[in-house]
Amino acid sequence: MSSVKGDFGRGLIVVGPVLVTLYLAYYLYSFIAGVTPGLLLNAETLEAIVPGLGEYARARLAGFLRVATFVGFLALAMYVIGQMTDTTTGGILEGVVDYVANRVPVIRVVYNASKTATETTFGAGETLQTPVRVETWDGVWMTAFKTGQRTPDGRATLFLPTSPNISSGYVLEVSPDDFTELDETLEEALTRVVSGGFGDADTAEDLEDTSLTVVGQLESDGTREGDQ
Rank of each mutant, 00 (worst) to 15 (best):
L65R: 07
T69N: 03
L53F: 14
L61C: 14
G72N: 06
T36K: 00
N42D: 08
G63Y: 10
R60D: 10
L74D: 03
L61F: 15
E47W: 07
I49Q: 09
L61W: 11
A68T: 11
P51Y: 02
N42K: 03
R66T: 00
E47Q: 13
L65F: 15
V35T: 06
V71P: 01
A62S: 15
G72H: 03
L46C: 07
A59L: 05
A68S: 14
V71I: 15
V67I: 04
R58Y: 14
E47I: 11
G34M: 04
L41Q: 05
L40Y: 13
G34L: 07
G63M: 08
L40H: 12
G34T: 09
V35A: 00
A48G: 03
V67E: 05
T36M: 05
G54H: 12
F73C: 07
M78V: 12
G38C: 02
I49T: 12
T69S: 12
L46N: 13
T36Y: 01
A48Y: 04
Y56H: 08
L39S: 05
R66I: 06
V71G: 03
R60H: 05
V71W: 02
P37F: 00
N42G: 01
G54T: 14
R58G: 15
G52H: 06
V50P: 04
V71K: 02
M78F: 15
A75W: 10
T36I: 05
G34N: 14
A43N: 00
N42Q: 05
L46R: 12
A48K: 08
G52W: 07
L76R: 00
V50W: 06
G34K: 10
A43Y: 00
A68K: 08
L61N: 11
E44V: 05
T69P: 00
A77F: 09
V50L: 13
F73Y: 14
E55G: 02
R66S: 00
A62R: 10
E44P: 01
G34R: 10
R58C: 15
R66Y: 01
L74C: 08
L53Q: 12
V67C: 06
G54V: 15
A68C: 09
A75N: 10
L39A: 04
A48C: 02
A62V: 11
P51W: 06
V35R: 08
R60L: 14
A75T: 10
G52M: 05
R66L: 01
L40I: 15
A77K: 00
E47T: 13
R66H: 02
L46M: 15
A48N: 04
E55L: 07
F64T: 09
L65E: 05
A68G: 11
L40E: 07
L41R: 08
G72E: 03
G63F: 11
A48M: 07
L61I: 13
E44Q: 13
L39W: 04
R66D: 01
E55M: 02
V71D: 04
A68Q: 12
